[in-house]
């Protein structure tokens, strides 16, 4: 049974839950996998730590929560501090490099992106999460990029598709420029076991 566990965290208002939703949708609707997304509920208001988790599997997800994520996507320091220890030693760490200053473990595949700045350069900082999503999609290859892209298009509010797809592409492009496409697919393959 192949099972991949993902946690996405950030502060309220960054679109953490939407990011989780899009990944889940990309897996479950566009790629024929099973994906269970759970958003953290609690006293989190705008600005405080917020998180969504996903369990992705080829078969029905039986245990809905995650224990040791294989993929950890971080968009805020608070979220990083709260969940940093649960990431698997070989798990993939993806982070907003201007907002999160992690203590990188040796051997841990880690990938940073200035997603907020990139989003600002597109004119709308609100699409930061989609930039991050494009980057994370490129890094992890949990589903093919185009599947994730389809899920973005299907999930964002009507009228914002173009901007969001641009953001997604910018995230992917940043990865390709910084890490090169080939190198990473090898890394993710080893991480995704």
């Amino acid at each position: 049974m192949s099972r991949t566990e993902i946690r996405i965290t950030g502060f309220g208002g960054q679109g953490v839950v939407l990011s989780g939703y899009i990944i889940g949708r990309a897996c479950a609707i566009h790629s024929g996998k099973h994906a269970t997304m759970i958003q953290s509920f609690g006293p989190e208001a705008r600005g405080s730590a917020c998180s969504a988790t996903l369990a992705v599997s080829d078969t029905m997800v039986l245990y809905p929560y995650i224990r040791r994520p294989d993929i950890f996507v971080v968009m805020s320091t608070e979220g990083y501090d709260m969940y940093r220890d649960e990431l698997k030693d070989e798990g993939i760490f993806v982070y907003e490099e201007n907002l999160v200053h992690p203590t990188l473990k040796e051997g841990q595949p880690s990938f940073g992106i200035p997603s907020t700045r990139i989003a600002e350069s597109l004119g709308r900082s609100i699409v930061q999460n989609i930039v991050m999503l494009g980057f994370a999609a490129a890094v992890t290859q949990i589903v093919p990029r185009e599947k994730m892209r389809e899920a973005v298009e299907a999930s964002v509010p009507t009228g914002t598709e173009e901007l969001n797809l641009k953001a997604f592409d910018a995230g992917c492009a940043h990865f390709d420029e910084k890490y090169g496409q080939k190198e990473v697919s090898e890394k993710t393959l080893t991480a995704d076991s």
Binding site: A28, H34, T36, M37, F41, V61, P64
Partner: peptide, 9 residues
């Protein structure tokens, strides 16, 4: 709550 708040296909 778990079924209510979990998102799936």
């Amino acid at each position: 709550e778990c079924v209510g708040h979990m998102t799936e296909k």
